[in-house]
């Protein structure tokens, strides 16, 4: 894969031709197909999106070695939260149902000796349960907390009335367990599934898991490396107010 860093003068249709897996990422900014020959800066201007933030996100996703911490740290936490929340919606409305439907197809195709697949399905369900709890916790508790914090910081208020001594630090370690199970699921399929199942369906299922995992890693990287330090900064500012 071409590891070029995309710039504001690149045409968006050309960028997608370099890496079509970026399509769902740009959708999260409210951009859809039919880009014409428009360049990134023009499209971002029209939609009122920061092109620096847009480029930082797509380059981070495109190139695992690229992580513009400084550029991202200068972005408003509200913009980051909007992006993360749109990503969650994508997982809930598309990624998870797609993975489930591919797993169901595999199960439907299996006429007998399905014990292994039934075990895999139970394991997937357990993983998904934990994943949904994690997402819901972020949507319902963490993100509103950050929005409030941002507002307090703008108005020089103290946050202790509503949140006591809560800090974003408590959130930092939560990703690990969920990531671990997804990796286990992939390894169970790759290493230990007997070759008695429809290979094409198995491949489709695995492709979906790999893609989901890559997206989640990127998502976690943005949360842990960008959102958490920004929020710690806000917490410090407010506590000193």
């Amino acid at each position: 894969m071409n590891m070029k860093i995309f710039i504001a003068e690149d045409e968006l249709s050309w960028i997608i031709q370099q890496n079509y897996l970026l399509l769902p990422i740009i959708n999260r900014f409210g951009l859809s197909l039919g880009f014409g020959d428009k360049k990134v800066n023009k499209i971002c201007d029209e939609k009122g999106i920061s092109s620096d933030f847009f480029l930082a996100i797509i380059n981070t996703y495109h190139n695992p070695d690229y992580f513009p911490e400084e550029a991202l740290l200068s972005v408003s936490p509200l913009m980051i939260i909007d992006y993360l929340q749109n990503t969650h919606a994508y997982y809930l409305e598309y990624s998870v149902p797609r993975i489930e439907s591919l797993l169901n197809k595999l199960l439907e195709d299996c006429s007998d000796h399905c014990t292994e697949l039934n075990m895999i399905e139970s394991f997937y369900k357990k993983y998904n349960e934990e994943f949904l709890i994690h997402i819901r916790n972020e949507d319902e508790k963490i993100f509103p907390y950050v929005r409030d914090l941002h507002q307090y910081a703008e108005n020089n208020h103290n946050n202790q009335v509503k949140y006591g001594k809560y800090s974003i630090r408590q959130f930092e370690k939560e990703h690990t367990n969920v990531d671990e199970k997804l990796n286990d699921l992939k390894n169970l399929l790759l290493k230990y599934l007997k070759p008695a199942y429809n290979q094409n369906l198995c491949n489709e299922f695995l492709f979906a898991l790999f893609q989901f995992e890559q997206d989640l890693k990127d998502h976690a990287r943005i949360e842990d490396k960008i959102l958490v330090p920004k929020v710690l900064e806000l917490e410090k500012k407010i506590n000193n107010a």
């Binding site: 014990t115 292994e116 075990m119 990796n183 286990d184 699921l185 390894n187 290493k191 007997k194």
Partner: peptide, 28 residues
């Protein structure tokens, strides 16, 4: 050795590899 970390993932491995008899327990 196995590339599996979680206890529930190890349970799936143990069941599909036949290390655990599932006659008297519900594997799920």
């Amino acid at each position: 050795k196995l590339g599996i970390k979680s206890v529930s993932g190890l349970a799936v491995y143990a069941i599909i590899s036949g290390f655990i008899e599932t006659d008297n327990i519900n594997p799920e």
